[in-house]
Design a protein around this nucleic acid. Structure first.
Lengths: 193, 193
DNA sequence: GAGAGAACATACGCCACCGTATTGACCGCT
DNA sequence: AGCGGTCAATACGGTGGCGTATGTTCTCTC
């Protein structure tokens, strides 16, 4: 018995459609989630799609829910498990700055183009809140008073988002190590100034 | 003689179409730049559109060019004119953090959803480069060595972008003054640490 | 191994948008 | 007054995506 990495000739599930939808979002935003093109890339015709979802909107909702789930508290479990707050923060910065991870951030960036859609707004908000909560409590653990911890977390998280954004549009390799160093110097409050 | 704020019954120019296209981008990204809907909001039919542009792509190109122009070096002239680098930087942070300016940032955020389009990529890149150049030279003036100035500028600009991004998705008013203070504490190198 | 249901194919009508063609109305200019 | 150019309206064919209807095939289960 061997587990196939790619679901070869087997039939598709609702999850497969949702995953394909997320990939489409990463590539072209919400408008790219179109039933017929997705069916083509999946190697089927659209007829079978309606066995899984009632309409396109339901697919979009499913994809967004899945994304919000896996990138909200669920996706932060690994980081949250780090006991030492300073190390946790450094790990977070390192991860982000070094990451040219292909799919994960692309979805969030693409969703910005469709931020007027209420469903999108909810999903993005949910993910952002979870991350901000983690970073805020980290800064509190580091000794900042709660209100300062909150705004500090906000600025730091904003920088993370912005760096991802720049990484996706900028061809100039900014040397990750230099960036990580700089980010650490700015956001790791060794002195808690 | 009174100057009409809205071009009332007069006829439209290519500029008018480009402006409408930018507004559409801010609202719904590139896919929202559709000839017939735009014609409807402009109060004409699409027949007249093709007197100004050969096709939709040309309109998109014109809109993006206009945006890149007005938000690149041209749009930074006011800030660049500030002689004192520290004041320039503070002004920049203040402007951004306090700004819930409706249209300007929306376009950039919306364009993220269409960053795979080469035209979009070029425009965004052009604007980002101009801003990064200004911030880098500002940090150099402040006494940072060139390489550190560059990465510092990158992190600071990323934070700015991220704050705008959060402001558009987050309903929680983060109290601009607190944020401005925090941003200043982080990015204004009084000590040039 | 026969039925049930899930996954798929095919074919259809519908609508939104693109681009073209043609014609008409409104300028400025000599 | 007449002329050319610009902006505009109307009408048309083409394309791509949505959703429905109606079968067909696969797979699981009893």
């Amino acid at each position: 018995m061997f587990s196939p990495v790619v679901k070869d000739t087997t039939r598709l599930s609702a999850q497969d459609w949702a995953r394909a939808a997320l990939q489409a979002i990463a590539d072209g935003g919400l408008p790219a989630v179109a039933v017929e093109p997705l069916a083509r890339t999946l190697g089927v015709t659209k007829g079978s799609f309606y066995a899984h979802y009632r309409n396109r909107d339901e697919l979009v909702a499913a994809a967004l829910t899945e994304w919000a789930r896996s990138h909200g508290d669920a996706g932060l479990a690994g980081l949250a498990a780090i006991a030492d707050p300073a190390e946790r923060l450094r790990e977070l910065l390192d991860t982000v700055v070094h990451a040219v991870r292909p799919l994960a951030p692309s979805v969030q960036l693409s969703l910005l183009g469709d931020r007027n859609n209420p469903q999108v707004k909810d999903a993005v908000q949910q993910v952002n809140q979870a991350r901000l909560r983690l970073m805020t409590s980290t800064y509190i653990e580091l000794g900042l008073p709660p209100d300062r911890a909150e705004s500090r977390a906000r600025v730091a998280y904003a920088a993370i988002l912005g760096l991802l954004q720049l990484a996706q549009t900028d061809p100039h390799a900014p040397d990750p190590d230099t960036l990580a160093e700089e980010a650490a110097a700015v956001f790791l409050p060794a002195d808690l100034r």
